[in-house]
């Protein structure tokens, strides 16, 4: 097992191996994202029953919860990739950390905006400075900070290092977001989906939500892979394998 992980790790460090491997995955990931997105959204927005108190406005949960979950997962992944770069100086890890930042920021922004749109009819306000909302806003600023630091340094190497440290320091915000609704009095409700207990949501409403969560994870993976491939092509543009690849593309297009 350990040996297998080690081999996988060394292979992941090779840009060409990653590029070739993911070429085969992309059509599947696109297919799954489209299919899951259509099924989940149509089921959730049109066929799931309305909530007994909120009526139809609860349906924003099918966008809000997946986006919020993925922005936090993206942050954790970015910090881990940053740590791998710091410890082993693996270039691929730095590129992955770099491409995740804007994707994570986008999902975080979607979660904040949909939350505000839902908050207006339900709570009676767009925004309130409670612990959950404030810590999510901090997450967005951390993503922005990581993106800015990557660009602010003279060399790529220095940018990767500085942003990895910021990402690792900001990791402390993730448990704060998760437990903010339990540790303090907040306007935001506690979690509906729990790992250890059964969800406090009727199955008719729950299944489309689960579909949307899985689909959004797959969509996130697709975005990260596509952007990582671009990053690889750019950094390896002077290598023979990229030149050959481009030549082949050029010939088949002509």
């Amino acid at each position: 097992m350990w040996q297998w992980l080690k081999t996988l790790y060394h292979r992941l460090g090779s840009p060409k191996w990653f590029y070739d491997l993911t070429s085969r995955w992309i059509p599947w990931l696109i297919g799954f994202s489209v299919l899951g997105g259509v099924v989940g959204l149509v089921w959730g927005l049109a066929f799931a029953p309305a909530d007994y108190q909120q009526g139809n406005s609860f349906r924003i949960i099918y966008i809000h919860v997946p986006a919020a979950l993925i922005s936090q997962s993206a942050y954790i992944m970015m910090a881990i990739a940053g740590a791998v770069f710091m410890i082993w100086r693996m270039k691929m890890a730095a590129w992955v950390a770099r491409v995740i930042a804007p994707i994570g920021a986008s999902f975080c922004l979607i979660a904040l905006l949909t939350g505000a749109i839902w908050g207006q009819p339900t709570w009676g306000t767009w925004w309130v400075w409670d612990a959950r909302l404030t810590s999510m806003l901090l997450l967005l600023f951390l993503f922005f900070g990581v993106m800015a630091l990557q660009q602010a340094m003279e060399t790529d190497e220095a940018g990767h290092k500085a942003s990895a440290i910021l990402a690792l320091v900001g990791l402390v915000n993730i448990p704060i977001i998760k437990y903010s609704v339990e540790w303090w009095n907040t306007l935001h409700q506690p979690a509906t989906l729990k790992l250890t207990e059964k969800p406090s949501m009727h199955p008719d409403m729950l299944y489309p939500l689960l579909i949307m969560i899985v689909t959004t994870y797959v969509f996130f993976a697709l975005l990260v892979i596509l952007r990582t491939r671009n990053e690889i092509l750019w950094h390896e543009r002077k290598r023979t394998w990229v030149k050959q690849l481009l030549e082949k593309r050029w010939n088949s297009a002509a």
Partner: peptide, 11 residues
């Protein structure tokens, strides 16, 4: 402001 709980169910 109204606070909403974490329970969702059809009417």
């Amino acid at each position: 402001l109204a606070k909403h709980d974490e329970n969702y169910m059809p009417p």
